[in-house]
């Protein structure tokens, strides 16, 4: 099969012919139809994530079943499928206590060293990480479900959104944008999107944001308070991960509000308010971080996309043939045109 191989950091991937992955008794082999390029791939390419070379990247894949292991029951050759690349250990304290999202020993197939990813004609996952893909969902959109939407939706579930809530999203990138779509899947919710890039705001507007704000032109906190009779938002989702946006997020949430941190900040964070009691303590807020996703969220997520309660029609901003993978990586790396997702297609 053809696969794009990373041989040396800082060099282009080379497409080569290699043997197909060996299928174990519990595995499903996917003939890849589409694979998304993720920010996490950039971390690997920049050498910020340890990896054993040579390596095949890619963890956001959809396709059809090419082969199944002897113990696989739910899938047969030809089934349309999508994969979720996070394999949890099923043995640690957290896996045993219904907290698989914080499993101590999880591996991401395609991201972690020693695994083989989906930037190849075939991609192998355990049966438990594979889901049936309904006819209504095209392969390119399905790749979006596997990682950005799954992560964003996990955060949305943590946010405990209620009907009629005002939800503020800081950051209109892949996670923030899909968190907005997740929030909009609840009835009569209004979402305000905040980003410094107008193109992202335009897209958010088209996809259903009630209000958009560019903090380089206006104070989002002031505007949010103005739009909520001074109360602040019921839910704030922070998907940037900067000290400033984290502090703005706390100031934007109202009494009894919920705040979810989805941006993973690598810089120093400090909560600091002019009035600690009024801005923080007396609001009695709940703040939770959100990381990765859970298997039990996947079936409902697929159903939400199938029924168009979550509309992914604007999520794939660029499609490229697999052969142009290096071009795709370059576009994502340089954030050209502020795309939500670049997806590679296989013929």
């Amino acid at each position: 099969m053809k696969a794009a191989i990373l041989k040396k950091l800082g060099t282009l991937l080379t497409i080569e012919e290699i043997p197909k992955p060996q299928v174990g008794e519990n595995d499903v082999l996917m003939k890849v139809k589409a694979a998304g390029i993720c920010i996490a791939d950039m971390y690997t390419l920049r050498g910020e994530r340890p990896i054993k070379l040579p390596h095949i990247l890619g963890h956001e894949a959809s396709g059809v079943v090419a082969e199944v292991g002897s113990k696989v029951k739910k899938f047969k050759t030809g089934d349309r499928i999508l994969g979720n690349a996070i394999i949890t250990c099923n043995e640690c304290y957290y896996c045993k206590n219904d907290l698989e999202q914080v499993c101590n020993k999880h591996t991401i197939v395609g991201t972690d060293g020693g695994t083989q990813g989906a930037f190849a004609e075939y991609y192998k996952l355990p049966e438990g990480n594979v889901y049936h893909l309904p006819e209504e969902i095209p392969f390119d959109q399905a790749t979006v479900i596997t990682s950005p939407l799954a992560s964003a939706y996990h955060g949305v579930r943590i946010a405990d959104i209620h009907r009629g809530d005002t939800v503020v999203v800081y950051g209109g990138g892949a996670i923030g944008y899909h968190a907005m779509l997740g929030a909009l899947s609840y009835d009569s919710v209004r979402v305000f999107m905040i980003d410094t890039v107008d193109k992202k705001l335009e897209l958010a507007r088209k996809a259903g944001a009630a209000e958009v704000m560019n903090p380089s032109r206006e104070d989002p906190v002031k505007r949010i308070l103005g739009l909520t009779e001074g109360r602040g938002a019921d839910v704030v989702i922070e998907a940037v991960g900067l000290n400033q946006t984290i502090n703005q997020a706390i100031l934007s949430v109202g009494k009894a509000g919920r705040l979810v941190f989805m941006g993973a900040p690598f810089g120093k964070i400090s909560f600091e308010f002019e009035n600690y009691r009024q801005s923080f303590l007396f609001k009695e807020i709940k703040m939770t971080s959100s990381i990765t996703n859970r298997k039990d969220e996947m079936p409902q997520l697929i159903e939400l996309v199938r029924t168009k309660k979550i509309d992914l029609s604007r999520s794939v901003s660029l499609k490229l043939p697999f052969e142009k993978i290096n071009e795709g990586l370059e576009i994502v790396k340089n954030d050209v045109g502020n795309l939500i997702r670049v997806v590679l297609e296989f013929d």
Binding site: F266, I269, E272, I285, S289
Partner: peptide, 28 residues
């Protein structure tokens, strides 16, 4: 008195909140 919640080292927030999927809940 005034309180600043400063996660001292650069990855303090990341390790202790993000990675842990931890919650901070105020009770008043």
């Amino acid at each position: 008195y005034h309180v600043v919640i400063d996660f001292k080292d650069a990855l303090g927030f990341f390790h202790e909140l993000s990675e842990k999927e931890a919650s901070i809940i105020i009770a008043w």
